[in-house]
């Protein structure tokens, strides 16, 4: 599904990622873990087109997508969420998700300004689809609220709903459980499973080990910019090197 080959990224003289290769299997939930400074977020930013890698290549279903801009990746069915959640705070919850339909609609400025018939149909469709994704994520009753007024936990779910509206093939979540309380984290785990059941490939960076071990089918461990281990949650838990890396840090 998504493959990375020998990805290296340096910032100034510092090597944040060193020769990391991986392959995320289609339809699975893959977790990326590692101590602070392991290069997880850098890897995410490279895959999702925020940075270009210094060396190495990224392939989406065999197609070279190295260094493609995020908007191009979105059109290819790749979407992500952010650690600090990036909503459109002055738009309503529903409107936020409607922006998620951008790649699935095509009316241009002229069609929109003159309200051509095709555009009206399309708008209706955007609204319906957005609403159904909101309901899928359990935010249906908040549709008309301003996104900026949502509590943090709801905001995170909204960001995921908005990403889903794109009907992605693969979704990246950067620390989805950060800042959530334990009840919200359980809800999040439920939502991630539901998304996975739709056949969408999921990759997430996460610090909450309980969550990662609970929902992920495969785990990649990074340490100091290198790939340390790869395996099922069970294999990772039993991996001595991984345990050492975490203990060494603490």
């Amino acid at each position: 599904m998504l493959r990375g080959e020998a990805i290296t990224r340096t910032f100034g003289g510092i090597t944040a990622l060193d020769d990391v290769s991986f392959s995320f299997a289609a339809g699975k939930i893959t977790g990326i873990i590692g101590p602070n400074g392991a290069g997880k977020t850098t890897l995410f930013n490279i895959i999702t087109g925020i940075y270009a890698p210094t060396e190495g290549k990224v392939f989406l279903e065999g197609k070279d997508i190295t260094g493609l801009a995020p908007e191009k990746l979105a059109r290819m069915g790749m979407v992500r969420t952010f650690q600090g959640i990036e909503l459109f705070p002055q738009m309503t919850v529903l409107e936020n998700v409607m922006v998620g339909r951008h790649t699935k609609s095509k009316s241009g400025i002229i069609a929109s300004a003159f309200k051509l018939p095709g555009h009206i149909r399309e708008e209706k469709n955007i609204r319906e689809k957005a609403l159904s994704w909101l309901q899928f994520a359990g935010l249906g009753d908040l549709a008309d609220q301003e996104a900026g007024s949502l509590p943090f936990g709801r905001g995170r779910i909204l960001e995921i709903a908005r990403a889903l509206a794109l009907e992605p093939r693969i979704i990246f979540m950067d620390e989805p459980a950060a800042g959530l309380n334990s009840r919200e984290t359980r809800e999040l785990a439920g939502l991630i499973r539901k998304i996975s059941e739709l056949g969408i490939t999921i990759a997430l960076v996460e610090h909450d080990m309980e969550l990662v071990m609970d929902i992920c089918e495969e785990i990649m461990v990074l340490n100091l910019g290198r790939k340390l281990a790869w395996g099922t949650p069970r294999e990772i838990q039993e991996n001595r090197e991984v345990v050492m890396a975490y203990l060494g840090e603490g």
Binding site: A69, A74, Q90, M91, H102
Partner: peptide, 22 residues
């Protein structure tokens, strides 16, 4: 419209707008 929402999205979070394919 779709375009108007995308414009407002750019204003409020350009990186999120790009990630969503704008």
């Amino acid at each position: 419209s779709r375009i108007g929402r995308a414009l407002k999205a750019i204003h409020q979070s350009e990186v999120a707008a790009r990630v969503l394919g704008v």
